[in-house]
Amino acid sequence: MAKKGNLYELTKGIIKENPTLVTLLGMCPTLAVTVSASNGIGMGLATTFVLICSNAVISLLKNIIPKAVRLPCFIVVIASFVTLIEFLMKGYLPDLYDRLGLFLSLITVNCIILGRAEAFASKNKVLPSILDAIGMGLGFTLSLFTMGSIREIIGTGQWFGMDLHLPVTMGMFIMPAGGFFTLGVLIAVVNKIANKKPPQQVGCANCPNAKNCPSYKNEDNAKEAAAE
């Protein structure tokens, strides 16, 4: 990868390499918690916090961690910060803590965080790693906020709890089915605006397990990954 400026590392995650809408990572929380705009922001910021801390620590430890056991080491670092944010949120934002519930613990296995640790923080210095984490985290928060707003407005006729007095609401949008639908349409619209072909494959190229994955191996883009 060519050397690029710090500003690029900061801004690439927001739109160009947006983790949810372009590289399709971290789909589970994207679909599950975005029933309202405030949930989306809360989940996005919690993930951003864990991402920044884990990227910084992993980038500092990159020469100490043996290559063969790096994935378990990364997971332990990430799980520690997840426990920290669980405590903080339980103490200061108990309401949001109850609404996010199980998915707060599941930040541990969010592939955005493990993917960035593997693809970026374990190869770069501390400052670019932190900037990368801030950018990716903001991109994630932005897409969660957009998803949450769309689903909350169409599904309940409210936005951040304010009543918008819409003539029609569709309850389906806050159901699981509405989550899949909204994300599908959102990805299609983003690709239309960016004038790109829609992604054909879920973010496997960025997954730390890509080389083991049978469904990925058969794809043509395996060759691209090998060429990089």
Binding site: L24, F180, F181, L183, G184, V185, I187, A188, N191, K197, P198, P199, Q200, Q201, V202
Partner: peptide, 8 residues
């Protein structure tokens, strides 16, 4: 085409 259709 691709992922959006799959999600729907």
């Amino acid at each position: 085409k691709g992922v959006p259709a799959t999600l729907i």
